[in-house]
Amino acid sequence: MAHSAVPASAPVAVAPISLSALAPWAAFAAVVTLFLLYLVGVEQGAAAIFQGENVHEWMHDGRHLLGFPCH
C-alpha cells in the first residue's frame, strides 16, 4: 500500500482578519452582551425598560445561576 487514495495537497494559507473588518462585529457582540446582561441582572421592574414583572420572572433562574440577587 504505497499509494494513497487521497492525493496530497499543499496546505491552504489563511488570510488574517484585519481589525477594521473585525471592529463592527466586536461592537455588535458587545452591545448584545450588555443588553443580555441588563436583562438578566438589572431588569427588576422599579427602574425597568419593560412594563410589568414578565422579564423578571423569565430571567429569575438565570439571575440566581449567575449570582445576581433579586429578592
Rank of each mutant, 00 (worst) to 15 (best):
M1H: 08
M1I: 05
A2P: 01
A2T: 09
H3D: 14
H3K: 15
S4H: 10
S4T: 04
S4P: 01
A5S: 08
A5I: 08
A5M: 13
V6G: 10
V6W: 10
P7F: 07
A8Y: 14
S9F: 14
S9Q: 04
S9K: 03
A10Y: 15
P11M: 11
P11S: 06
V12A: 11
A13K: 03
V14C: 04
V14H: 05
P16C: 06
I17L: 15
S18V: 04
L19E: 09
L19Q: 06
L19T: 03
S20T: 01
S20W: 10
S20P: 00
A21K: 11
A21E: 13
L22C: 04
L22W: 09
L22T: 00
A23Q: 07
A23T: 03
P24S: 14
W25H: 13
W25Y: 15
W25G: 06
A26I: 04
A26V: 05
A27W: 09
A27E: 06
F28R: 03
F28E: 04
F28C: 02
A29F: 12
A29G: 06
A29T: 04
A29W: 12
A29N: 09
A30S: 12
A30K: 05
V31C: 12
V31A: 14
V32K: 05
V32S: 07
T33Q: 09
T33A: 13
T33C: 11
L36H: 08
L36E: 10
L36V: 06
L37Q: 07
L37G: 06
Y38M: 10
V40S: 01
G41L: 07
V42C: 05
E43D: 02
E43C: 00
G45R: 08
G45H: 05
A46E: 14
A47L: 15
A47Q: 14
A47W: 15
A48Q: 07
A48T: 01
I49E: 05
Q51H: 03
Q51K: 07
G52N: 02
E53I: 11
E53T: 05
N54M: 13
V55K: 00
V55G: 03
H56P: 00
H56F: 05
W58D: 08
M59S: 00
M59D: 01
M59G: 00
M59E: 01
H60Y: 13
H60C: 11
H60V: 08
D61Q: 09
D61G: 04
D61I: 06
G62S: 14
R63G: 00
H64T: 07
H64D: 11
L66T: 00
G67A: 07
G67H: 06
G67E: 09
G67K: 06
P69N: 15
C70Q: 14
C70N: 12
C70F: 13
H71N: 10
H71T: 03
H71C: 12
H71F: 11
